[in-house]
Design a binder for these strands. Structure first.
Length: 418
RNA sequence: GUGGCUGUGGUGAAGCGGUUAACACGUGCGACUGUGACUCGCAUAUUCGAGGGUUCGAUACCCUCCAGCCACCCCA
């Protein structure tokens, strides 16, 4: 093995790729039904965009970005997430000017320089959606409901919705202070990581996995009890709408997000089936982000889901399409007829296969079987002369005679579809 | 960035100092010279992640490196 892919960058082979297409198509259908339109933004942005949106002090920006200087001496970065780029485009094209409410979705590769592990790669893929311009909790509820619907449609019951509110710049500082003084008293009992978190990001101690920390922080003050009137009302209304739309959820007051821009509603779709990668999709409200990026003071809410993780949850479900017909030929003179048929049938929407290399009939039949073709037909001199052939239904070996023409075969194949 | 585990064919793997590197699946061809699936036969790793070392001899033991996986950190 001389030349291999870059660490953490994977090839998606056809079988896997079909599973991905199924996920993408389902997302498109559900999102479009909700009135979202796809936006396609570049995979690379100016580094500054991510520093200003995600937050300079976050791990993503500090140590996980693919940042380099291009030939024009500009610092550019392969996008580590989607929202920042979408919001940059939103502002750049003044989308708010033509419609106060924008509903956008996107899908594509993201890049983070992390140590690869199950469900986490350096190039990974996300499908995300954003609503901008709506303060009302109805937007939160629609986004959450849409996400839940997506998972239901894709056939998964496993990831479950957890919601929380992180408050706003009004009430969060007070909560931070309260939490900090609570932690300060138990600092000795916390793990090394949590001692560090106490200084850098005290909220993070709440989702530490070390048993000792879970125990010591059990009685920690809850964000939800420190919300200001506005945030509290907002959260209640979100819950109200979720109940109205029968969207199942649970409240997790210890849920923390890794990006600085989140305010108020935050949420995750979590699973216990992916080891440590429990978050399959996550997001939240970001009321300050757009203005922070130099745009108008417009609120937003959105989420992103990890395609690799959804694909893992779908497991080995197959999404292959099988050939309708395999054409076997006796000799080289029949291959012209076969190829013309193949061409005509494909053009009329029939999935056909034939042998490429003039192999023995036995080999061709074996291949027909291996490809799981529904029908097979053998074309020899007699068939060409008579313009009729015997078609064999592979499943049970039943043979039937039909015209050796595109329309003749098409009817035969279509007829047996029901 | 830190830790643990693992590296034998297309795949799953046996072998743990001297073997034709077992077996199974897969793949190709044939038995059936105009028909697949079942069965049977043949073929399919000059080589055991790479480089050193120990030894008469190393896939096996030692060292280094590399890769993969999983976990931590963090995150979708």
């Amino acid at each position: 093995m001389t030349l291999t892919a870059v660490k953490g960058f994977n090839d998606i082979l056809p079988d896997e790729s079909r599973r991905w297409q199924h996920i993408e198509q389902t997302a498109r259908r559900v999102f479009e039904l909700n009135g979202f339109g796809e936006i396609r933004v570049p995979v690379m942005e100016k580094t500054e965009l991510f520093c200003r949106s995600i937050g300079d002090a976050t791990d993503i920006v500090e140590k996980e970005m693919y940042t380099f200087t291009d030939k024009g001496e500009n610092s550019v970065t392969l996008r580590p997430e989607g929202t920042a780029g979408v919001m940059r485009a939103f502002i750049e094209h003044k989308l708010y000017a033509q419609d106060p409410v924008a509903k956008l979705y996107y899908m594509g590769p993201m890049f983070r320089y992390e140590r690869p592990q199950k469900g986490r790669y350096r190039q990974f893929h996300q499908i995300g959606a954003e609503i901008t311009g709506v303060h009302d909790p109805l937007a939160d509820a629609q986004v959450l409901n849409m996400l839940a619907t997506f998972f239901r449609e894709i056939g998964l019951t496993e990831p479950t919705l957890q919601i929380n509110s992180l408050g706003c710049p009004e009430c969060r500082p007070a909560y931070r202070t309260a939490l900090r003084s609570f932690l300060e008293e138990r600092l000795g009992a916390l793990c090394e990581d949590c001692k560090r978190r106490f200084a850098t990001n005290p909220l993070r101690t709440l989702d530490c996995k070390v048993p000792g920390c879970i125990e010591s922080t059990a009685g920690a003050p809850s964000v939800l009890e420190h919300l200001c009137k506005g945030c509290d009302d907002h959260f209640s209304t979100v819950k109200h709408y979720l109940d109205l739309s029968a969207t199942p959820y649970s409240i997790n007051a210890r849920m923390v997000r890794g990006l600085d821009y989140y305010t108020r509603t935050t949420f995750e779709m979590v699973t216990g089936l992916l080891g440590s990668q429990s978050a399959v999709a996550a997001g939240g409200r970001y009321d300050g982000l757009i203005s922070q990026l130099g745009g108008p003071a417009i609120p937003g809410i959105g989420f992103a889901m990890g395609l690799e993780r959804v694909a893992l949850l779908l497991g080995s479900q197959e999404f292959t399409t099988l050939p309708d017909l395999f054409i076997a030929t006796m000799g080289s003179s029949e291959r012209d007829v076969a190829f013309s048929l193949l061409d005509g049938l494909i053009k009329s929407g029939v999935r056909v296969e034939m042998d490429y290399e003039g192999k023995s009939l036995k080999s061709q039949m074996r291949r027909a079987d291996k490809l799981k073709a529904r029908y097979s037909v053998v074309i020899g001199e007699n068939e060409v002369a008579a313009e009729r052939a015997t078609f064999k239904r592979m499943a049970d070996g039943l043979q039937s005679d039909a015209a050796l023409t595109v329309s003749g075969i098409q009817t035969l194949v279509m007829k047996s579809e029901q």
